[in-house]
Design a protein around this nucleic acid. Structure first.
Lengths: 122, 122
DNA sequence: ATTATTGTATTAATCTATTAATACAAGATG
DNA sequence: CATCTTGTATTAATAGATTAATACAATAAT
């Protein structure tokens, strides 16, 4: 694995984002077992406590649960994982539009930019 | 003024973003004088050193310059301020699209979301 | 039964962002 | 000339994120 972390943000927050992304895009499926804290820490080359902190957050929002000795799992609740994807998509869109409007980009120009960016990848 | 800062990122980085936004959207025009470090610090309710740090960054990328005792100014170079707007717009678009693709949203869905978000504000 | 692996908890150390308190230099202002 | 306002620099203190080194509890694996 081995990610590059952004220096401008705490690693545990970036881990949360990565984990949520894994759930949203189906890399981590509902009910599936997650790799152990220690292994994840090795993969991401960070301290186990940092991973632990991010995973506890994931539990707090109901996306995962842990079983003391058998490991940690993604929630069985497929409703939740599906919602996550939509929520993330809508939040990111809202943020994006807000930022574009803050620098005074017109509606049509926003759509054009997105379209152009998408068409670069076909 | 008085902004709410995000706890997930250093304030000086958020200040840089705010200042760049001010330039990009024309709030701070090319050649104009900026408020003093001390006043900005009061406005944003942060330490003068934090403002100073952000402003030095602004100078490093050529968007501002300081005159020892008369104050600090936005660059006279209108080319630069115009470019800033375009660069920011393109970067934000690229980031946005990347994030949306990371959570497995299809091209058409991305455009739909943006369009829906924009139409909510007319 | 023993061992290995799991999550969890604790405590100290380190590093960095921020605050805070100043001081200095230089030009503008009165 | 004296004072005020600039930007700038320095140093110490504080707060929070991260690392580090362990230890414990419970259960799965052997």
């Amino acid at each position: 694995m081995s990610y590059k972390f952004d220096e401008s943000q705490p690693i545990y927050l970036q881990l949360i984002e990565i984990f949520k992304t894994n759930i949203a895009n189906g890399t981590w499926k509902a009910g599936e077992k997650i790799d152990s804290v220690r292994n994840l820490a090795l993969d991401f080359a960070v301290n186990p406590n940092t991973v632990q902190r991010a995973l506890v957050e994931l539990e707090n929002i109901g996306l995962a649960y842990s079983q003391r000795t058998s490991g940690r799992f993604i929630t069985q609740n497929q409703e939740l994982t599906r919602n996550l994807k939509h929520e993330m998509a809508e939040n990111k869109t809202r943020d994006f539009v807000k930022q574009m409007q803050a620098i005074d980009i017109e509606q049509k120009a926003i759509l054009d930019l997105v379209q152009r960016c998408l068409s670069l990848e076909e």
